[in-house]
């Protein structure tokens, strides 16, 4: 990548050699061995560090008498994700709320980073949504296995009627694997398309008009993060649901 952010160059200067050697050991060949850390990874790291700093700040300044603005923002987010999780997962949603809240905040901030001039949208590259989708996939399968046991979870793939199970089982397995693909492509394509629309209109009218599409990007960012969170909740609720 010819141009990169100052933070990316700093990361490459500090950890570039270590990351490159680890990747060589794992048998992965980075596209640019001199600078294996690229812009999107650096931006993701900034988002992660920012979120951790925000969480620590809120945790350290928790107060019932005098809530500060950071705590109020955190409470609004907690209410929002909590009410959605209660509606979808139902009883016992509190265990999963931390995960879905992190997913929501990470996706929404990564989406909104594209609005800052000079920065790419990290979720506009397929690998970033793929990472989040794989994490969601592992998380809900892990909780499904833990909740229902190996046999129970396999039974949940087979469906309620025993003689149609040989047909349903492969279909269910394929549809579960396709969830990773559909989560990835939905987020990636939305971000990519809204960036592209701005770019195309900028090449048509290089003044003022493309700014309208930044507003569209803003709405699409919020809605796609919301949808990502909802789908993670729906998959979780299906994985941990007990059949009575």
């Amino acid at each position: 990548m010819p141009e990169s952010l100052a933070f990316t160059r700093l990361l490459n200067y500090l950890f570039g050699n270590a990351v490159a050697s680890i990747m060589q050991m794992l048998g992965i060949h980075p596209a640019n061995p001199a600078a294996p850390i690229d812009d999107k990874f650096a931006l993701e790291l900034i988002v992660v560090l920012g979120l951790i700093a925000f969480f620590i700040l809120v945790r350290l300044t928790l107060s019932v008498e005098k809530p500060n603005p950071a705590q109020q923002i955190a409470e609004v987010i907690h209410e929002f994700t909590g009410s959605n999780a209660d509606q979808i997962i139902g009883h016992g949603y509190e265990r999963f709320q931390a995960f879905v809240t992190c997913i929501f905040l990470f996706v929404v901030i990564n989406n909104l980073l594209g609005l800052i001039p000079g920065l790419h949208t990290p979720t506009g590259f397929p690998v970033v949504p793929l990472g989040i989708a794989l994490l969601t996939f592992l998380y809900y399968n892990f909780h499904g296995l833990r909740e229902q046991g190996v046999v129970g979870y396999m039974k949940h793939f087979a469906g309620p009627v025993w003689w149609i199970a040989p047909l349903l089982f492969p279909i269910e397995i394929i549809s579960h694997c396709a969830r990773v693909m559909s989560l990835t492509i939905r987020l990636y394509a939305n971000m990519f398309a809204s960036d592209l629309v701005t770019l195309v209109f900028f090449s048509l009218v290089p003044l003022a008009i493309p700014a309208v599409f930044l507003g569209l990007h803003f709405f699409v960012s919020l809605i796609q993060a919301y949808v990502f969170m909802l789908l993670a909740m729906i998959y979780l609720s299906q994985a941990v649901a007990h059949e009575h």
Partner: peptide, 10 residues
């Protein structure tokens, strides 16, 4: 529904 169109785009 929207993601179907975006699959086409991709």
């Amino acid at each position: 529904i929207e993601s179907l169109t975006l699959f086409t785009l991709v």
